[in-house]
């Protein structure tokens, strides 16, 4: 079983009201789950248990089915994005230059999997397709900052910058 990191849910009343309105608009509509999930992700940034329960309840669709949809499509995320969003490029050039090892190192340092967020909400990791900086391969970005020509040993220093 994949280990799950759980962040406390911090949804606001406004967000809830917004989601409820979306659900109301889609009630009794066939195939409503996916559009509602899209909107919910727009509202909350991710789809935690609390949000999925609201959708399941509101649309009268089993929670297991909602969860099945969320885990099927890569577009949906069970985890929020961190304050620092680390994205490691898995494009061909970066990959052959060792970005896989760099990603492994970051996962190990942070104790989370790709797509997840650390329990303190600070870091999240994504594995991206080619970001078009092949000349700098292997490349990763943290928010808008780009780090290139990396080795595994650079990971510690990069993470230190964002403590």
């Amino acid at each position: 079983m994949e280990k799950m990191t759980v962040l406390p849910f911090n949804g606001t009343k406004e967000q809830e009201a917004e989601l409820k309105a979306v659900i109301e608009n889609h009630k009794n509509m066939e195939g409503a789950a996916i559009p509602v999930l899209h909107k919910a992700q727009e509202i909350y940034g991710y789809l935690p248990l609390e949000v999925q329960e609201m959708i399941a309840e509101g649309l009268n669709v089993p929670l297991a089915e909602i969860y099945g949809i969320v885990t099927f499509y890569a577009q949906f995320s069970l985890y929020p994005k961190g304050k620092y969003q680390i994205a490691v490029c898995m494009g061909t050039a970066c990959y052959v230059k060792g970005s896989g090892d760099i990603l492994e190192k970051i996962k190990e340092k942070l104790g989370i999997e790709v797509g997840q967020c650390t329990p303190d909400g600070k870091y999240s990791i994504d594995a991206t397709r080619c970001i078009g900086a092949c000349g700098l391969a292997p490349v990763l970005t943290v928010n808008d900052e780009v780090f290139g020509r990396l080795t595994v040993d650079d990971v510690d220093d990069i993470l230190k910058k964002y403590e």
């Binding site: 799950m4 248990l49 297991a64 099945g68 499509y73």
Partner: peptide, 27 residues
């Protein structure tokens, strides 16, 4: 019409389970 289990994940990682990989004891 209980539907506490469903297909979770995708492709080779597909498995049958409850929402959020919960045990049958917790759903």
């Amino acid at each position: 019409q209980i539907s506490v289990i469903s297909c979770v994940n995708r492709g080779f990682s597909t498995e049958i389970g409850a929402a959020f990989n919960k045990s049958m004891a917790d759903v």
